[in-house]
Design a protein around this nucleic acid. Structure first.
Length: 478
RNA sequence: CGGGGCGUGGCGCAGUCCGGCUAGCGCGCUUGCAUGGGGUGCAAGAGGUCGGAGGUUCAAAUCCUCUCGCCCCGACCA
């Protein structure tokens, strides 16, 4: 650690973000522009995110598979909106084995096309449906401007691709996945999200309808934390995914796709992080409990270490733990170090604790005295479990309170322009592209989503004053 | 692609405008001793040819030309 103090969020939020990512050793810049190296600590967090999602996918009948990294260029061209959406950001392989290729290969920016092609081979009958496949993969999009985790040329994600016999079923799948995502975000990541429909402008290239969950970051900007798309029959028609139904009639299938990426790591960092660094949600944190032994000399050490070992053995059965037995740094250094890395709970065990038969605990989510408590040896596991549960709850509550305090219901357009500088506006919108575009032009705020949860009734479009039947969130976004 | 900034030991920087002895400083690193309940102290060490190429000059980190790369801001985007 070259400098000791982090830049504070108030001083410069994006600088704070970069420093936290680098100094907590989540990720590092790579020799390739726009690409990052995800370091073991960051990858461990991602692995926990993966497991958390994967469990839910499996529980809802999905299976995993792996499709090729390379996609023939012609495949992308089969769906008009899709190719138009992605063309500017494709990485294309033109040579292989020293030879110019007959047809250039695109490094997948997303896999609807190649998976759609395979589905056309596999699906012949209504009995073959639904197909519910997910893949964990890396994809490449040649972005102009990149940020660690939030936007990199290459990123990791899961992409689910499903095919169904009916429109209703495919729409239900799209929605079911969004519910699953939102459940993951709130229950495991302690990230409050707003699920809703994307506007026509903001929807996925080639989709009939996109839905997303939006989260508010610590600077009040919005981050799309997961998307689910209803493709209608667009891709089925482009790739000839057809089946014979019960009445022996040939039909196009209805498809969906949905994804959560390593960007979610950024969402966790910016939802919970503070001026001391990361604050990781207990259910996903690579290390849930760090134990710092405190010993002034060898005599202390001989008393403290056996106790630490015993505690570590016991807690290790139920929690992801780490004993920081480094002798070259002081306890104070370790406290700051693990706070930077966002470990939810720290236990201190020193001669004084042992004398009193207690363990000192410090919560990451509550700095200073407020987060300190003493635990007892005989009930340690239960007490730690309870604390981690409380930490999760208080992290969620804090994030939700922050978000709600920064959502406004502006009374007119002038007020909207003002509130989106430091929050989200929740306003009636007539649904027209023109109003949306004007608002974006004036404020840089875009429609984030039209939430499923609506107040009901009618109002007037915040921009044009025309009758509106729905409210939308407008915000500056990552 | 437009605007801005920056490339000097592992990291962060000073030195560049007004060329000049063996290129400094802080952190980190190594070793030793002490220390250890909120970012330890002292001491001794190791480590750079100044992004790259060309040029000007007795002399270039410093001036000139070209070039490569990165970061930040904007338009585009998970």
């Amino acid at each position: 650690m070259a400098e000791e103090k982090l830049t504070t969020q108030a001083e410069n939020y994006s600088e704070w973000y970069n420093q936290v990512v680098l100094r907590a050793e989540m990720a590092d810049y790579s020799p390739v522009r726009g690409c990052m190296v995800i370091r073991p600590y960051g990858w461990a967090l991602w692995e926990n995110i993966q497991q958390s999602l994967d469990r839910r996918f499996k529980a809802t009948g999905h299976v995993n598979a792996a499709f090729p990294l390379f996609i023939p260029m012609s495949f992308l061209e089969k769906e008009k909106e899709h190719v138009e959406g992605f063309a500017p950001e494709l990485a294309v392989v033109t040579h292989g084995g020293g030879q110019k290729l007959e047809e250039p290969l695109v490094v997948r920016p997303t896999s609807e096309t190649i998976i759609g092609y395979m589905y056309s081979q596999w699906i012949k009958s209504y009995r073959d449906l639904p197909v519910l496949i997910n893949q964990w993969a890396n994809v490449v999009r040649w972005e102009m401007r990149t940020r660690l985790f939030l936007r990199t040329l290459e990123f990791y994600w899961q992409e689910g691709h499903t095919a169904h016999a009916t429109e209703e079923e495919a729409r239900a799948e799209t929605r079911r996945i969004m519910d699953l995502y939102a459940n993951f975000a709130m229950v495991d990541a302690a990230v409050p999200v707003v699920p809703g429909r994307k506007s026509e402008t903001e929807k996925f290239a080639g989709a009939v309808q996109s839905i997303s969950m939006e989260a508010m970051m610590g600077d009040t900007k919005a981050l799309q934390a997961g998307t689910s798309h209803f493709m209608g029959q667009n891709f089925a028609k482009a790739f000839d995914i057809k089946f014979l139904d019960q009445n022996n009639i040939l039909q196009h299938a209805w498809t969906t796709s949905w994804g959560v990426s390593t960007r979610f790591v950024g969402a966790i960092i910016m939802t919970h992080g503070d001026d001391h660094g990361l604050v990781l949600p207990p259910k996903l944190a690579p290390i849930q409990v760090v134990i710092v032994p405190i010993a002034r000399n060898d005599a202390d050490r001989s008393i403290v270490m056996p106790v630490v070992e015993q505690v570590a053995n016991e807690l290790g059965l139920n929690f992801r733990i780490k004993v920081d037995d480094r002798s070259e740094v002081t306890p104070g250094f370790k406290f700051n170090d693990w706070e930077l890395r966002g470990v939810p709970l720290r236990l201190e065990i020193g001669p004084k604790d042992i004398e009193k038969g207690v363990v000192t605990a410090a919560r990451r989510d509550k700095p200073g005295r407020e987060g300190k408590s003493t635990l007892t040896f005989d009930q340690l596991s239960a007490q730690v479990a309870e604390l981690l549960t409380e930490i999760h709850a208080s992290m969620y509550d804090k994030a939700e309170a922050f978000r709600d305090a920064h959502i406004f219901d502006p009374k007119d357009y002038d007020e909207l322009k003002e509130v989106v500088q430091n929050g989200w506006a929740f306003s009636w919108w007539c649904g027209s592209k023109e109003c949306e575009a004007k608002i974006k032009e004036d404020t840089k705020a875009t429609t984030r989503c039209i939430p499923f949860q609506q107040p009901g009734g009618h109002g007037q479009c915040i921009y044009c004053g025309q009758p509106a039947s729905e409210k939308a969130y407008f915000a500056r976004a990552y």
